[in-house]
């Protein structure tokens, strides 16, 4: 079985946020006005979180790039009254925007806080519409959105592989954030395919997952040396 997953090496991550902006660009994530931003309404499917501890001069900081964990046991999908969020048979947790009623129950159910809501409809200046990615739909007002593991890229890669009459290779399907990361901290692939790097990395002794104790079985693994 294919199970798409991600390993993020926190020891390599520099907190540069390239993944964040790459995701915004790839997935047509709209920005909000400064005022709205102050009200906590920015959307960022990938968010580089910073965990700061200790005061000068003994401060430490750890960055946690945070996409959707694509949980194998996702609490978000169970609560959706209309099945507008679902997990597919390759483990990708997706959203059906045209069906979502905007109740935000899934957002509350997700312990990782990775669901974002369109409080207003997305706003693009006419010129900005030029840089929208035609492979990804623009969300409308009042629906939930979140990281899709760049699912559209999988569809395209499958299509291409089929046309070329070959199997899908690891490098054919890489999400935008993994592709752009300058330190290769984000590794993506099939967790169940021993030839993929993620399969090996998830066995690394440094591995942990966020809030593992909740039993959500996230498919995003983090690597971090414990000091």
């Amino acid at each position: 079985m294919t199970r798409w997953g991600m390993v993020i090496d926190l020891d390599r991550c520099m907190g540069c946020a390239a993944c964040e902006v790459a995701c915004k660009s790839e997935n047509n994530i709209a920005t909000v006005s400064p005022d709205q931003a102050d009200r906590g309404r920015t959307n960022s499917w990938m968010k580089v979180m910073a965990h700061v501890e200790g005061e000068f001069p003994h401060t430490e900081m750890q960055f946690y790039p945070r996409p959707c964990m694509h949980c194998d046991n996702p609490p978000c999908i169970k609560v959706c009254p209309v099945a507008a969020t679902y997990i597919d048979d390759e483990g990708i947790v997706g959203q059906i925007y045209p069906r979502c009623i905007g109740c935000r129950y899934c957002a509350n159910a997700c312990p990782y806080m990775v669901k974002y809501f369109n409080w207003y409809g997305p706003e693009w200046a006419e010129s900005e519409r030029q840089h929208l990615n035609p492979d990804v739909s623009v969300r409308s007002t009042g629906v939930i959105e979140k990281c899709t593991f760049c699912h559209h890229r999988l569809q395209k890669a499958r299509e291409e592989a089929r046309v070329e009459g070959r199997e899908l290779r690891e490098e054919d399907y890489q999400p935008a954030c993994a592709e752009v990361c300058p330190t290769a901290a984000i590794v993506f692939g099939d967790l169940d395919d021993a030839t993929h790097r993620v399969a090996e990395l998830k066995e690394d002794p440094r591995v942990h997952r966020l809030m593992e104790d909740l039993g959500t079985q996230p498919k995003v693994y983090y690597l971090r040396a414990r000091e």
């Binding site: 907190g15 994530i29 920005t31 909000v32 931003a37 960022s44 979180m49 910073a50 900081m61």
Partner: peptide
Amino acid sequence: WLAEQPGIFPEVH
């Protein structure tokens, strides 16, 4: 896109 988080603090924009 950058203005929404110019630094390392998610709540600073």
